[in-house]
Amino acid sequence: MSRVGKYPVTVPAGTTVQVADGTIEAKGKLGQRSLKLVDEVEAVLEEGKLWIKPRSDSQRARMMWGTYRALAQSLVTGVSEGFTKALEISGVGYRAAVEGKTLKLQLGYSHDVIFPIPSDVQIKTERPTAIAVSGIDRQRVGQVAAEIRAYRGPEPYKGKGIRYADETILRKEGKKK
């Protein structure tokens, strides 16, 4: 039995959820998104709570039960609160700045790295060494943050590079005489 799927998705105030033809549509203060369900699960909206239920007792139906409950939770949370990933830059001369629709990164290369900001996410730089990626789609926010981090991942000796704010870098000892 799914330990995730058996709990309902609570719909917060100010967010409307509709279930029709195997599709969940959510509208909130940040926007609108929809989720197409697979044939193995169904969604039921009761008293401000969204329940995801398996149609059969097969193994695939039980797998999809927990998966689609988690996706529905992300859908509702995204349109009501949104998601944010924070990135930290460490290194001498390493910095970031938002210039119009692009993110300009100076990461120790001979050239600046120009990252075009996708239309479905917002990127802010509170300080030259802090980047915040936010949006309503959890997967998209994580993907954009991973793409930015990939330009100069953290290295284990001095910790220089781009890392997630909650990430710890395992440091290695340098050369010995």
Rank of each mutant, 00 (worst) to 15 (best):
T15V: 11
T77W: 10
R62A: 15
S119E: 14
G31P: 00
T125L: 02
G22H: 03
P116N: 06
I169R: 00
K160D: 13
S110L: 14
I52D: 05
T15M: 02
Q32I: 03
A70K: 08
V113P: 12
R152G: 03
G108D: 10
L35I: 06
S2N: 14
K158S: 07
A61D: 04
I169V: 08
A26K: 00
D112N: 15
V133H: 03
S2V: 14
L103H: 13
S90E: 01
A145G: 08
F83V: 01
R69K: 12
A20D: 12
Y157Q: 07
K104N: 13
G91D: 02
T168N: 06
E173D: 09
I52W: 06
V144Q: 09
Y157S: 03
L35F: 06
D137P: 05
I24N: 03
K27H: 09
P12I: 10
M64H: 08
L45F: 00
A70T: 02
K36T: 02
I162R: 06
I148F: 13
A20E: 15
V41R: 04
L107A: 05
T102N: 15
L87F: 07
V41A: 04
Q18E: 15
V38K: 04
T23L: 01
R149Q: 12
V9N: 02
S119Y: 11
D57C: 14
R140K: 09
W65Q: 00
R60F: 08
V113C: 14
A97I: 12
G153F: 10
K177N: 02
K6D: 14
A26P: 01
Q122P: 02
A86N: 05
P156M: 06
D120N: 14
E147C: 09
G31K: 00
Q122M: 05
S2R: 13
D120Y: 11
K49R: 05
V41Y: 07
K53I: 08
T168R: 10
Y151W: 12
Y164D: 00
A146R: 12
T84N: 05
E81S: 14
T77F: 11
A145D: 07
L35H: 00
P54N: 07
A72G: 05
A86C: 03
K172L: 15
V17N: 03
P8I: 04
E47C: 02
V144T: 13
G91N: 01
E81W: 10
R138K: 15
W65A: 02
L105P: 08
T15Q: 02
G82R: 04
L107H: 09
T15A: 01
E167P: 01
S74C: 15
R62S: 15
R127Q: 15
E173Q: 09
R152D: 12
K124Y: 06
A43K: 04
I131P: 01
L103C: 12
R171V: 01
S56L: 07
R60E: 13
A72P: 00
K176D: 07
K160I: 10
M63I: 14
H111W: 13
M64F: 12
V133E: 06
K85Q: 12
Q143K: 11
